Amino acid sequence: MKKLFLILLGIMFYFSLLKYSVNGYPYQCSINDLANDTLNIYTGAPVLECPGYIDIISVNVIEDANYLTIKISVKDTISESSESNIYYYFLLDRDNDPKNNCNDPPFNFCDTFYTIRIKNTVTVSKSIWNPWGWSDESTNAKSIFESSNTISIKIPKNEIGLNSNPKELPWRVITEIEYMCGDFAPNSGTAILKRYFYEKNIVITIPVEVPAIYIDGIEYKPSNGKVEISLAPGEYEFFVPQEIPISKHVKLIFIEWSDGVKDNRRRVKITEEGLNVTCIYEKYFYVKVYSPIGNTTPPEGWYPEDEKLTIGVVEN
């Protein structure tokens, strides 16, 4: 009986962890790194005398509904200022396509990387690989000192276009103190963040005239009046245009979502059940009545389809 109780307790604990993983941090990838394995990141030669705040101990990559968060833990305390440049790099292959990655070490295996730079201040930058080399782009990513030996970078997912693809996201972390030494995690190749194992079906029905729906700023184009995608459980911002011009005298105006929400921009919580919702629009026509003998009714303007209008003329 005691053995059965322990088994049931273990099963309950497992499912409580699974539920937390789905609703809190849907996708995670954690790796540990050996201490005292610092090196010259450009030549690969070992460097034994290297500050502990460069020596990676572990990295945890966490993806939730809106952000990709990378927590980098090192052996010793991280200073918030330095006489030399200190770098913490997060490399990723955004589309999981090796053909368009940089091939030059140490920034190979990736098409995008973020840099936390510590000197007199702490800054965050973003770099994108192009056929002609690396170029900088603006970023809303933030650095956070989580503890004395852990620093993190929080990246908005819509900034790197992360949606339901790719299913596997290759990544790597590099540290460096300028002209001295650094560390890799993993030591070779990349780690893989496996994504969308808990994805839920999302079906959004919209009029065929509506060109796209936006979820957290990412554009999704419909096929035959439907957007069908998969999203992890979590909270998202949905947006559809308020008005859709069809011609000079015809347009669609958003009325409501089929669940009763009146705002065309709304927050939606995706649960285990997924989501099936319709965007309801009404067609409007521009009406202008003219008569040479007097003033006309109704007034010139937009009127909804199926509204009955009584046309009249008041003689001058």
Results as ranks from 00 to 15, higher is better:
179 Y>S: 14
161 G>L: 00
302 W>T: 10
250 V>M: 07
38 T>F: 04
205 T>V: 11
207 P>G: 01
62 I>G: 07
103 N>I: 07
155 I>T: 00
315 E>N: 05
193 L>E: 06
315 E>A: 06
93 D>M: 00
158 N>G: 06
112 T>M: 04
16 S>F: 09
245 P>L: 05
261 V>K: 08
67 Y>S: 02
42 Y>D: 13
282 E>P: 00
85 N>Y: 12
197 F>P: 01
68 L>K: 03
308 K>H: 10
170 P>H: 12
262 K>H: 10
127 S>E: 05
29 C>V: 12
80 E>V: 14
251 K>W: 02
118 I>F: 08
13 F>H: 04
78 I>M: 12
9 L>E: 08
138 S>R: 11
103 N>K: 14
216 D>T: 11
107 F>C: 04
221 K>Y: 11
209 E>K: 04
166 P>Q: 00
253 I>C: 02
178 E>D: 09
7 I>G: 03
132 W>K: 14
307 E>Q: 15
228 E>A: 10
272 E>R: 13
278 T>G: 09
239 F>D: 09
185 A>S: 11
18 L>P: 01
111 D>V: 01
15 F>L: 10
246 I>Q: 09
30 S>M: 10
105 P>H: 07
303 Y>N: 12
138 S>P: 07
305 E>F: 03
24 G>P: 03
224 N>S: 15
25 Y>P: 05
127 S>Q: 05
107 F>E: 04
